[in-house]
Amino acid sequence: MATSKIILTDVYKSWGKAEALADINFVCGDGELLVLLGPSGCGKSTTLRLIAGLETPTSGSIEIGGRDVSNLPPVKRNISMVFQNYALFPHLNVAENILFGLKARKVPKKERQKRLKDTAALLGLTEFMDRKPAQLSGGQRQRIALGRAIVAQVSVCLMDEPLSNLDAKLRQEMRQEIRSLQQRLKMTMVYVTHDQVEAMTIADKIILMKDGRIEQHGTPEDLYNRPATAFTGSFIGNPPMNILTSDGPLSKSFPDSSYFLGIRPENISISNTSGIEGQVVAIEYLGADTLIVCQWGEQLITLTVKGKTDALVGDYLRLNWREENIHLFNRDSGVRVSNPAGGTAR
């Protein structure tokens, strides 16, 4: 089978004068699950719609499977797509919904029926074939939407926040199901979400976007361990990374006030002897661990400790961390600084 690599080169998109996307360059490898992640309005959905052909780029090129598709309509791009609200036709039953595209493309009837049967079996939809979407639960509707994407038997599948309408428990189940389907069918998948947990658990690669630009492109581990910017640091991880500023030197790797210091809550420990002193302002017990929020000067620092804590609101704690766990970012640009003082930051 031909490769289905997706390549975006120098893609820009603006609506009139407003620039929606700038300088988008990335490659999604064959059989890879790439997540476009970012806060709302960051341009992730627009990027997906450009790949789908529902929007056209202002400049730049889009290539799918070695073919420049920048000027092709969606149908010629050999893709399938799952929409946020599933885009199910309310007047058609499950089978007709799944077969809608195949009929439009005049796939022979025998072939259609075979594919429908396979898809229905794969997704456990066989007994619902005659129902209308309104008679089904959220999870079942989501499955029909998946079925429509699978039945097309194209190798590229685009997903636009497919799980955002489901409750938390179902979301987790469907997440695993989508991932295993993608791997079993060897689909190349571009998946849009604003939920960093979803992104971290499902992705081969993540592209984190902000204000229409790519903030970082890498594996989930890259983004977690080596955030390229202070924004990445604070976006990935729950609770988010503490981004601290100081007017004077804080540690030997935080030599002056021109840096942000990033430290993850799970990397902060309570010490008796050294570290900075903060006053506890809030304690959240979560079962397995506890979040402690401390006030240090004007800034708040969050840390997690295992199990329960003895600390009480109002107590003073000494907070400490290892040099190798800190991340330094340029205070003006927010960009990661690898070796500010020739110190230990990797």
């Binding site: 789908a52 052909g53 529902l54 309509p73 969606p74 149908v75 893709i79 399938s80 797509m81 929409f83 946020q84 609200n85 885009a87 036709f89 809608f100 595209g101 439009a104 493309r105 429509r148 097309a152």
Partner: peptide, 11 residues
């Protein structure tokens, strides 16, 4: 969304 799904599916 319905129209867009139709476009992607080639109607």
């Amino acid at each position: 969304e319905l129209k867009e799904a139709g476009l992607v599916e080639g109607s």
